[in-house]
Computed example of a mutant assay.
Amino acid sequence: MTQSDSAPGASPPSHPAYAQLRQVTPVAAVMLENNPGMMTLDGTNTWVLRAPGRDECVVVDPGDHDEEHLHRVAGIGPVALTLVTHRHFDHTGGVEKFAEITGAPVRAVDHRFHRGGGTAFEQGEVIEVAGLVLRILPTPGHTADSVSVVIEPDRSQPGAVLTGDTILGRGTTVLDDSDGDLGDYLTSLRDLIGLGGGRTVLPGHGPDLPDLETVARQYLAHREDRLAQVRSALDTLGADAPVRAVVEQVYSDVDPTLWPVAEKSVNVQLEYLRR
């Protein structure tokens, strides 16, 4: 993920301070980890989900291996379950320690992160825990194992979706060229659009956003625009043009220091077009 491929009209709003729990919806609060960087924006959002009046909670993406952060999150309340949206270290580096601190099972697509009896998600699985109904929606593309967590609406809240790195709070998502896939990503965006309007976006990085359908449509349009630009670059440079040449043409409006990151997404786009 990065700001190098910014969506039209995007601006960097203010973000809460590190190490402070911020309530976003009646059931979702966020703790921002102090690990800012080119690939993490302000840092990793660790989400804490809990129904009103309940003690136990669900933690989504404990973050990197920062023991202060992990202990701070664990101290918010008894953790019934930990969920992982995808394999990247800034979301999973702390899994081992967090499981040790809380004793809570950890569930993820990738078996490497299972702890405490946690298992892989089943297709379309619905999890009832901590007074909440959570639906696991596969959203591959950023990585092969990416999922989103749908908080189903009820009388206390209109619903929200934890999107991991599939949709960010600002900018757009870099597709990992080791196992990301543009075709999967476009399908995932359409699946998120299909959830309908009115759902809050709770991203893995950056601020929360008010309406998932609107943001997902912007992401889809932006990705299709970039794909058209890559096609045009290949028409000019030749079908076998190297990735850096394509990046220099398509991302000429982007700071060149960010081109190595853009290469990841372009590699995935080239693979999509050439197959």
Rank of each mutant, 00 (worst) to 15 (best):
Y272R: 10
T187Y: 12
D211C: 08
L32S: 03
I76R: 15
L212C: 02
S232C: 06
E125K: 09
D145N: 05
G183V: 13
D145K: 02
L134E: 01
E125N: 07
V133F: 00
I101G: 07
H69F: 12
G43P: 00
V147F: 04
D90R: 11
E152G: 00
S4H: 04
A51L: 09
S148M: 11
V149F: 03
S6E: 09
G117I: 10
E96P: 06
R190K: 12
S146K: 01
Y185S: 04
H91Q: 15
A216Y: 02
G131S: 02
V129M: 10
A216W: 03
L192I: 09
L258V: 01
P105T: 10
P260C: 13
E122L: 13
A28V: 02
P207E: 08
H86F: 13
E125M: 08
F89G: 12
E56V: 09
L70W: 12
A29H: 05
H65S: 09
V109H: 02
P260L: 12
A51F: 07
G238T: 03
H88P: 08
L209Y: 07
R72G: 12
D176L: 15
I136P: 04
E271K: 15
L212D: 06
G206F: 02
N34P: 05
E68K: 09
A28H: 04
V106L: 11
D64G: 06
L202A: 02
S148D: 11
L132Q: 01
V230G: 05
R22P: 03
L49C: 04
E152P: 00
G94F: 13
A120Y: 04
V126C: 09
V73R: 09
H222V: 06
